[in-house]
Simulated assay, not measured.
Amino acid sequence: MATECSISPAFDIVALAASAGGLNALSCILSSLPADFPARIVVVQHMSGQHRSFLAEILNRCTPLRVKQAEEGEQVIPGTVYVAAPDRHLLVNLDSTVSLTQTEKVHSVRPSAEILFKSVAEKYQKRALAVILTGANMDGSKGVEAIKKMGGKVIAQDESTSQVFGMPAAAIDTGCVDWILPLDKIADAIKNLVMGGQI
């Protein structure tokens, strides 16, 4: 009989993107994921590039998972949450290492969900799960199209629980979102999808 730890996850990576209201949304989701969560987690939160970010430290206090600011060239591994550095786009390369770039801003932001989602789609294809959370502007809408084109799945936060519905609404308008969920249902959906392949 297979034990829980021997079950292969249905998704290898979960990519989350947020802007306004994102700290609360990310805290809510990550606090509900178990320490032995078997997938990699990468996070883009829009932030000012003028100051040091304490996002990783704040999120570390609310989740049993290890949370760290991503570093150039490091390998992304399951059970760890990698957050984008201020004023750097975060990409996951084909060898599962991280790249941090200062290439042009996308939708006037850096880091951008578009850049992260497109890199995750290319590397992980149908084993990628993207989650687009509360935030302004359209960041992530082209990225979710890339995720779907490569066979991955997309969750968007619903309007009633979003502080700002711009990012989820733009993603939903693409027709590439598989599930529109209230914030308090997203963590369970991620767990069920990663562990069992369905909600």
Rank of each mutant, 00 (worst) to 15 (best):
W179H: 14
L181Y: 11
C176I: 04
I155D: 01
A187T: 06
A170G: 13
T174Q: 06
A170Y: 13
W179R: 12
I190H: 10
D188N: 14
I190E: 08
Q163P: 05
G166R: 01
A156W: 00
D184S: 10
P182C: 13
I190R: 07
A156K: 03
Q157I: 01
A156I: 02
D173W: 01
S162I: 00
D173A: 15
V154S: 06
K153D: 03
D184Y: 12
G175R: 03
E159T: 04
D158G: 06
L183D: 05
L183Y: 06
A169C: 13
I186L: 04
P168Y: 00
L183T: 09
Q163V: 15
I180Y: 02
D158K: 02
W179C: 00
A171W: 12
A169M: 14
C176H: 10
G166N: 05
D188C: 11
D184M: 11
D178K: 08
S160D: 15
I190S: 08
P182W: 12
I186S: 04
V177W: 00
A156V: 00
L183P: 05
D184R: 06
I172Q: 10
F165E: 03
D158Y: 07
V177Q: 06
D178S: 14
D188H: 12
Q163T: 13
I186A: 01
P168S: 04
I190A: 07
A169R: 15
A189D: 06
C176Y: 01
G175E: 05
G166D: 00
G152Q: 00
A187Y: 05
A187D: 11
L181G: 11
S162E: 03
L183V: 05
I172R: 13
